[in-house]
């Protein structure tokens, strides 16, 4: 996947990058297996199953067992990618993720599919806007929310190579390939500055990064300098990037997640202990009404316009004594 040139208008489903790269690494590393909860189709893993039926473990609709089995496979020397809708994987099996994966420090890769409001009209039972909050308190567990196909692909490779547990948040919502230098490097725990400016920092991850860039461009036209940071890793956090953002004096965070306990909370925790400044957190505040993904993004300000508005509010707050 090319990482060079300007943003293409074409939109990508990051699940394709996930499965394509997973198959490529699984060809090389025979320890890789997949564990699913009848989620072959929604995880786009039918190609993997066809190639490696004996490395495909479908436990049926049983998430607690799914994560426990993943931990056991790691005990047996396998590298399991446990892939399921993020709402069920993280909510239903949270104690297994805590004890069997994070506390055990098991070499298990959890893949939360269609997170955030990816299931739109299916409603809050199927939304996964809590997963950052309840996973990022777990030591040992790396948490990565890629922004585009290139980063998804790099994150899959990094997860496979990392000796320890990882949670990957893979979105189905169409995103553009972000503009990057051809020598761009992805590393778990390392933030990526996509654009620099001196008035405010917008820190985003996942599908919100492209929108943060669009917001920055509109602010630029008003003469406001914006730094856009792609913070794909919520754990471990890139503390240096957050402290440097705090030095600008105004921060906006944007995530397809609850406004409580996610990326915004993580950033605010660091800023409060370093150099307090306004941190406006853009995300979802409640169980949401019926509506499609775009409707929900629009309603709660997860749009270039809403993000730009939050940035101006943060700058205004900084100005007060």
């Amino acid at each position: 996947m090319s990482a060079e040139g300007v943003a293409s208008p074409r939109l990508f489903d990051c699940r394709d990058a996930f499965t394509g790269t997973l198959e490529a690494v699984a060809e090389e590393d025979l320890r890789i297996v997949i564990v699913v909860n009848d989620s072959i189709g929604s995880s786009k893993l039918s190609g993997f199953r066809k190639r490696w039926p004996d490395r495909t473990i479908n436990v049926g609709i049983a998430e607690q067992n799914m994560v426990g089995v993943g931990s056991g496979l790691a005990n047996g020397g396998k590298i399991p990618f446990v892939s399921a809708a993020s709402c069920f994987l993280t909510g239903r099996a949270l104690e297994q993720i805590k004890a069997d994966v994070a506390y055990t420090n098991a070499n298990v890769k959890l893949v939360g599919q269609s997170p955030g409001v990816g299931y739109g009209e299916l409603g809050p039972t199927h939304h996964s806007i809590e997963d950052f909050a309840w996973l990022r308190v777990l030591p040992n567990l790396a948490i990565v929310s890629p922004a585009d196909p290139w980063e998804t692909s790099e994150a899959v490779k990094a997860a496979a190579l990392r000796d320890g547990p990882v949670f990957l948040r893979v979105s189905r919502f169409g995103v553009p390939q972000l503009p990057r230098r051809s020598d761009a490097v992805f590393a778990i725990g390392k933030a990526e500055t996509l654009r620099d400016g001196g008035d405010v920092a917008i820190i985003a991850n996942g599908v919100m990064v492209a929108r943060a860039l669009a917001a920055a461009e509109s602010l630029d036209e008003k003469g406001i300098g914006v730094r856009v940071i792609n913070m794909a890793s919520i754990a471990p956090l890139d503390l240096e990037a957050i402290r440097a953002a705090a030095d600008l004096g105004a921060i906006v965070t944007v995530e397809e997640h609850s406004i409580r306990g996610g990326l915004g909370g993580a950033v605010a925790e660091v800023v409060a202990g370093y150099r307090p400044c306004p941190v406006r957190i853009v995300g979802f505040p409640e169980f949401m009404p019926t509506g499609g993904i775009e409707f929900l993004f629009e309603t709660y300000g997860l749009t270039p316009r809403g993000i730009a508005r939050a940035a101006e509010e943060a700058i205004a707050l900084r100005g007060k004594p």
Partner: peptide
């Protein structure tokens, strides 16, 4: 928690 973990270990043994 133990039985699901043991099932995973048993599957790993069978795969190999």
């Amino acid at each position: 928690h133990g039985l699901p973990i043991a099932v995973g270990i048993a599957i790993a043994s069978q795969i190999d």
